[in-house]
Write a protein that binds this DNA or RNA. Structure first.
Lengths: 334, 334
DNA sequence: CTGAAAGCGCTTACAG
DNA sequence: CTGAAAGCGCTTACAG
């Protein structure tokens, strides 16, 4: 039951493996192989079900038709949806995706890059974390296409595709203000990544621009890797000890924890309290009342990422880096 | 900036590549390489940051230390969580996982198996669909370890790890009956896979065992690939036109659609209506009132799958197939 | 119009 | 204790 090799095909067709290789790779015309030979070989390949060994091909050519995708956590619905969309789109263009999660762990992230390197992936799509600068720079030095998404490491010259996190927060706060809210809290995380910082900056700027004071005690930064219990507790402390009438949650899972906290405290969203969550989640639509959310344009992000990667892969010369910021949408529910 | 090869290391260390290879692969003792040489070579490897080319290694040895994972849809939270757990556990044992989604499409599933084959993955973890029998049999003929999870194709002799879907439904229905419910509906899908059938059988058996009539009009089979709008509409029709006081949802996403339907109809879960959903979801805990769910033992499923795969991979002789059915847990919320 | 041969970077049976 | 050499399955520059 050993797999067929190009040699087996060559023997059966009574030609050299060179000829078979040319035909497999669509270079038959270019190499002026005769019609008769092409047909004969194609027929044999078809009948025998021969598939070229991609490992051998990769070893020889140095590329793999595989794109590596590195995300924070594939079980987070934002990343899962993006991964799925990217996979679909890449697949249609003849590329496969392999993906893996960093868990915000710099060591794991570095190992993944190494893994992908030794597997000779052709390009990298990364939602990066601080500390990865050197490793990514090494990829760039080897002229490997790298695209960041969701987050950026601005000191590196890379392509980046992401949502307009600053404006998303800004608009959320303004929406609260229009509703007549006076004391607007922010629940965010302590991960030091650009998009979290931007969400914070947008929040502050909107307050200041509207002549509200920025009050430190209304901002909670939740430690990234702590368990949900602790998060809920911190949010409860905020809700109980501060005068507030609106909360912006900077991530999806923080909003989930926040809703659990509200439920435990028996506080209702409504006349006395407004909530907006970053990134949609099924729970928000179902919630009574519905939870307003900031929605990132997933489809567009995926499409843009793939488009940039493919144009880099197909161009011989180095293309200029692009920074693409896509607008978010605020969905108000009640 | 070309990557280092084993030859470069050999030259630097002034030994043969054979020696370097033995050292890299931990065979130094066995091949009685001298301590001095081992140390020298290890130092050079360390300093130079040399990483063996896995592609070349795979080509030579015929295996890859990669396990292929094929699921229905990686953006479904059940599969995303399982994938993440399996990835973690495999990683700790030196295996990488590559995963991909079939979207319940037989053509795509076959392509994925082919893709994994040409990449020489060492083993396959598959949530299978009908029509894949031949392709999987071909893998088994090549003595590749294959493990099914979540779903089974019983005509094949493979390992299988899954939850006890029959009992899960059975217990759910009995729980409704204990609450005093009389008219218990089932919302399920029309995919023809074993675990969906079992959920249906458990539902019927529990009714009959408790001397209730099985009423066909209380069962809705939703077409798999239809959009959510249509699903919600069908569920609304059920809720409006039938006398019922309890609904069991056979999947997670059907329950989500069901809750949306209830919300649109302004029907409340409570005195007049009980609901149980298959597989937990954040929305269920947050929902007011909380939604009861059947929980599959994700951690155990992942652990068992990996254990079986590794024992197959490490044993030379063919192991007998195991069918492992793990119990589910019914979580009652209100 | 077609083929012999080198080489991608490894592992391993064999020899000494 | 260590190394020369074959070979995994391809691609491609070169030759005719």
């Amino acid at each position: 039951m050993k797999a067929l090799s190009i040699k087996d095909i060559a023997v059966k067709a009574n030609v050299s493996i060179t000829t078979v290789s040319f035909i497999i790779n669509g270079k038959a015309k270019e190499k002026s192989i005769s019609e008769a030979v092409i047909e004969k070989v194609e027929k044999i390949i078809e009948e025998s079900g021969y598939k070229p060994n991609q490992i051998a091909r990769s070893l020889r050519t140095g590329n793999s038709n595989i794109i590596g995708l590195i995300v924070e956590d594939i079980s987070n619905s934002f990343f899962a949806k993006i991964a799925r969309l990217i996979e679909d789109k890449a697949y249609k263009r003849g590329y496969k995706i392999i993906y893996s999660s960093t868990e915000n762990n710099i060591g794991k992230a570095q190992e993944l890059i190494n893994l992908f390197k030794t597997r000779k992936v052709d390009a990298y799509i990364i939602s990066p974390i601080k500390g990865l600068e050197e490793d990514v720079q090494a990829l760039l030095n080897e002229d490997k296409p790298v695209i960041f998404f969701d987050r950026n490491l601005p000191e590196l010259k890379t392509n980046y595709v992401g949502a307009d996190h600053f404006n998303a927060s800004y608009q959320s706060v303004e929406s609260f203000i229009k509703e007549g809210r006076k004391n607007i809290a922010l629940v965010t995380t302590d991960i030091d990544v650009q998009q979290i910082t931007e969400r914070f900056e947008g929040y502050k700027k909107a307050l200041v621009d509207n002549k509200f004071d920025y009050k430190e005690e209304l901002v909670v930064k939740i430690h990234f890797n702590q368990d949900e219990e602790a998060t809920i507790k911190e949010i409860k402390t905020l809700l109980e000890n501060q005068t507030l009438d609106a909360v912006l949650f900077a991530t999806n899972y923080l909003a989930i924890s926040g809703l659990k906290a509200l439920k435990q405290l028996n506080k209702k969203i409504g006349a006395d309290l407004s909530v907006i969550a970053y990134d949609d989640h099924e729970a928000f639509e179902l919630h009574t009342p519905g939870i307003s959310t900031v929605q990132q344009p997933l489809e567009e992000i995926a499409e843009t990422v793939i488009k940039l990667i493919l144009s880099q892969l197909s161009s011989k010369s180095k293309l200029p880096e692009e920074q693409i910021i896509l607008p978010t949408k605020l969905i108000i529910r009640d």
